[in-house]
């Protein structure tokens, strides 16, 4: 599934579409790391508005990028995760590390 990358006000917006599982994270991880390396943004925003499914592999992907970004002083934000993805994020306590915007209750 294609992932959209966009630069907006110093932020790299990563918008993966479709399903994020272990199979997809291998490719996503490389793509996102390459874009962060290339753009050196102030902030990375994961926009999940077009993501229909995510399992714990997606948590690993987010936390891994968060760790790498933090070392470089880059902020990470999660946007529009929807109900199902929000549930998994909260279960793993990701919401305590990374701010989530546009949460569906």
């Amino acid at each position: 599934m294609p992932t959209d990358f966009k630069i907006q006000d110093g932020a790299l917006i990563v918008a993966p579409s479709g399903e994020i599982d272990h199979h997809e994270t291998k490719r996503l991880r490389e793509e996102i790391d390459r874009e962060i390396e290339r753009c050196v943004p102030e902030r990375v925003v994961f926009d999940f508005s077009r993501t229909s499914f995510m399992d714990s592999s997606g948590l690993g992907l987010i936390l891994g990028r968060y760790r790498k970004a933090s070392e470089k002083g880059i902020e990470v934000v999660i946007a529009n995760p929807g109900e199902k993805i929000t549930r998994i994020l909260k279960m793993a306590g990701v919401d305590k590390l990374i701010s989530i915007k546009g949460v569906v209750k």
Partner: peptide, 14 residues
């Protein structure tokens, strides 16, 4: 190392 989170069984249980 491969960014596995250790949340698999917790998710299955929940």
């Amino acid at each position: 190392e491969n960014e596995r989170t250790g949340m698999g069984f917790s998710i299955m249980e929940t």
